[in-house]
Every structure is written in structure tokens, then in C-alpha cells.
Design a protein around this nucleic acid. Structure first.
Lengths: 230, 230
DNA sequence: TCAAAAGTGTTTCACTTACACCCATGA
DNA sequence: TCATGGGTGTAAGTGAAACACTTTTGA
């Protein structure tokens, strides 16, 4: 195989911003670094890209290693190529952004995990290694933008969920209170939520209905944008 | 300097999708390849990333080399990391996407250009090298999406322009006819266009007014989204 | 019966959409 | 005077925003 260039090459990594949601709190998964640089501090899960795997595969591998879950919503976020990102050598990092259902992750993760990994509330984060704070901020902006035209928030929720969770996710991500009445009307108007014949029980207030996201119906819309501006 | 990894590294390149607009036609700049692979066929301008330049700098360098113009609208598009992109070796490419004013480019380009570079109408493209067709399509989608909330089309137009050019760009990019009346109303409602006391002359119909995009006013809005859905 | 959250009705206002008409110029 | 694109008025329809009220449960 001929070389395409004689230039020395930057190292290439993937880093993953993994979001989860639970009880009104938006969270992300961080790992504690076991080696220098930034040994002991928290960082986004990530690693080097191998020659025989695509970028998507590399990101998926990292994601699986940390969460133990497959079939996760994932997309490429942005590529960070500053010169001084890593004190050791030039490292270019392709960042990915993932949404997981915490209900499915918890059990698996604790069993398979060797190094220390932990979920942090997005509002109570530690200092992060490298430029990971910047990557995270880019991810937040992407998330904020995307939920206004794609119903991706359901990737954060279990199969059956309550309406107020949906609203709460939007409020957390958009960082503003929303009008409950109008939120509900507009969200239901998409026709993508199925009302189930089930309710939450044992709550000391009017028991809320459970809903399910109709993924098949959404896929039939075939990538068409939906108005989800609240 | 310690190495961060012992993995063999993929090569890293940048490729630029450079858009221009002239007389109702959306165009992109392509270069003819002088070496194998794909020798003789057309490709996006691009090249290897050097160790001492950021990704943005690398893209800007390529852009300047091809067009001779500085201060161009440019943003990172997406990173393509398939395994078989280049038959020689593993190459990951960070694609950029740029909008240039053809009126400013033409003169400069012809004088500085060594290799063959040419503007193609987006509707009459040759076969492209590598996965560049795919990259271009991604760029088109990004452009299509972005003009509905950012007034970036003015990066394609000279300082003074006629209203019908703006509409024509939107129609070309969105690939659908628009209602002239409503387009004008909504576009003017943004308050970002200044009507000048000047008109086009020597046309055999009612001479159109010239407009100018008020960039300063737009920057004061500070990244806020604008509704430009037509 | 009270607190807490679920769930609904309705009015107002703004913007979008559609259509039709007039205007200014050079040939 | 005609063809050509430039430029405007406005009614009807649709959807967003705001607000207040009713419902259901366990404690």
C-alpha cells in the first residue's frame, strides 16, 4: 500500500458526550482518568481510532465499553483540531454525541465496568480534562437546537413514560420554563405519541397516563422536520 | 514529546466544498487531479493537515490557494471516516463548507492558479473522485437547512444586490419555486436589508432597487435564530 | 378536606398564504 | 404600445400565546 502523504500525522481519537435523563435531571457520563496527563480528573469517554474501524464504529465501541448498551442514538458532533489540545502530541478528536435510556444502562454498566465511570448532573459538573468542557458545551448547543425539530428526547426516556417527563426534559435542555398547556397541545399535535390505557399508580395526586413514542410512524415521515419549538 | 498512542495513525485531510452564485446558478469549485488515484478526474479542493496548523487553518489555506480570497464564510461540515475512502491508505477527511462572492474571486483566481480549477453549475456536475459526491451532498443538505434560520446567502452576493437574486438563491438551494410577494415581505421583515437610493440601469423593465445586507445589525442579534422558512 | 400534579376550554393575537393588481422601463 | 420583470394591498386561514378552570388521587 502506497502512502498518500509523507507528512507526519496527528493522532486521531473519538470522544463521546453521553446524555441520560432521570427524575428531572439531565446527566452525562464521565470517566476518571487513570494516566497522565490529567490523571485523576474527569473526562469524556474516548480513545484512539484504529485503522480497521470507521469513526462511527470507534465511537460505538467506546460507548459500548462504557455503558454496555447497544442500539444507542448516536451522531457525529464536531471535530476538534486545535494544536495544543493534548500536551503530549498533536491529537485531533472527532466528538460524538449520544442519548441513552438510563433505565437500560444502569444494571449493565455496573457489572462490566473496570475503570471508574460516573453519571453527573449537567448542572453539577467537575472540572474536565483537555478541552472537554468546550466539547460538552458544543454538544449542549447541538442538543438544544436539535430537539426543536427532531423528536430525539424520547431516546432518553423508557418505552413508557409520563407527559411531564417530556416537558421536564425540554425545560432542562432549553433552560427555560414552558407553558404546560401549550406544550402538551403542540406535542400531541405531532401525532407521534400514543396514549396508553395505563396509568402510574400509588401517587398522591391524579395518576398520570402513560404514553409511548410511535417510532414507526415517525420513520414514515422520513426525516422530515417537525415543528417542536416551544 | 511523548507519544499519546502506539497505534498506527490514519492520514488526515481537509476537503472544501466552495459555493458561489452567479446569474441564477449555484456553483461549486472543483480541481482536476494531477496524480493517481483518480488522476484526471474532478475533486473537491483539499489536502493534508500539517502538524502545526489547526483544522480551520488548514481549510483556510486550501481555500486561499484555490480562490486567492481571504475573509470567506467558512464552517466545518462533517468528518468522513470510512475505511476505503482512499485506495492508498486510511484517510480521514474533515470537510469544510464555504460561501464566496464570485465577483471577488474571479480576477484573483485566474492569476494565481497553477493547477486546473473550475466552477461548475451544481446541476451539471462531472463525476467526482473518492467519496466527494457524498461530501457534496452533505454540504447541500447543510446549506438547505441553514438558510432557513441564518442569513448566510448574502455571503454569496456582492455588497449591493437586487432582491430577485436573493429569491433566486433561495429557490435554487431549496429547489422549489417561492411566492415572490411573500418572500419579499418576510425577508424585509427581518429588518436586515437596507434599501439603497440606487437602481440598476439600462434594463428594459422597471429598474429594480439595490439593497445591502446590514451585517452590523445582524451581529447585534448575536447568533439568535431568524425565521427564514419560505 | 387538602395538597399536588394531571388534564382541558377558549380567546386573542400574529403571522402565513394566496391571489390580484399596478408600475417603470427600453425596445 | 407592448413585453418584462419590479413592486404593493389585502382578505382569509392557520397556528401560537396566554390564562383560568376542573379532575383525581393519597394522605
Amino acid at each position: 500500500m502506497k502512502a498518500a502523504s509523507n507528512y507526519p500525522k496527528p493522532a486521531l481519537t473519538v470522544d463521546c458526550v453521553i446524555f441520560g435523563y432521570e427524575k428531572g435531571s439531565l446527566q452525562i457520563l464521565l470517566v476518571r482518568r487513570g494516566i497522565e496527563p490529567f490523571k485523576g480528573s474527569w473526562a469524556l469517554p474516548g480513545g484512539f481510532v484504529k485503522l480497521d474501524e470507521t469513526l462511527d464504529e470507534a465511537a460505538k465501541r467506546e460507548l459500548r465499553e462504557e455503558t454496555g448498551v447497544e442500539n444507542i442514538y448516536m451522531e457525529q458532533l464536531y471535530t476538534f483540531g486545535g494544536i495544543e489540545r493534548d500536551p503530549r502530541e498533536r491529537v485531533v478528536s472527532v466528538a460524538y454525541f449520544a442519548l441513552v435510556k438510563l433505565s437500560e444502562v444502569r444494571e449493565v454498566k455496573d457489572s462490566t465496568d473496570a475503570e471508574e465511570a460516573k453519571w453527573f448532573d449537567i448542572k453539577k459538573l467537575p472540572v474536565l480534562a483537555f478541552d472537554h468542557r468546550h466539547i460538552l458545551q458544543t454538544a449542549m448547543e447541538r442538543l438544544k437546537g436539535k430537539i426543536t425539530y427532531k423528536p430525539i428526547v424520547f431516546e432518553l426516556l423508557p418505552a413508557k413514560f409520563v407527559f411531564s417527563d417530556v416537558e421536564s426534559i425540554y425545560e432542562t435542555i432549553l433552560n427555560e420554563p414552558l407553558n404546560r398547556r401549550n406544550f402538551r397541545t403542540k406535542m400531541l399535535a405531532t401525532g407521534l405519541l400514543e396514549e396508553l390505557d395505563e396509568r402510574v399508580t400509588h401517587v398522591s395526586f391524579r395518576p398520570p397516563k402513560l404514553f409511548r413514542f410511535n417510532k414507526k410512524k415517525y420513520q414514515k415521515l422520513n426525516a422530515k422536520e417537525i415543528n417542536l419549538r416551544f
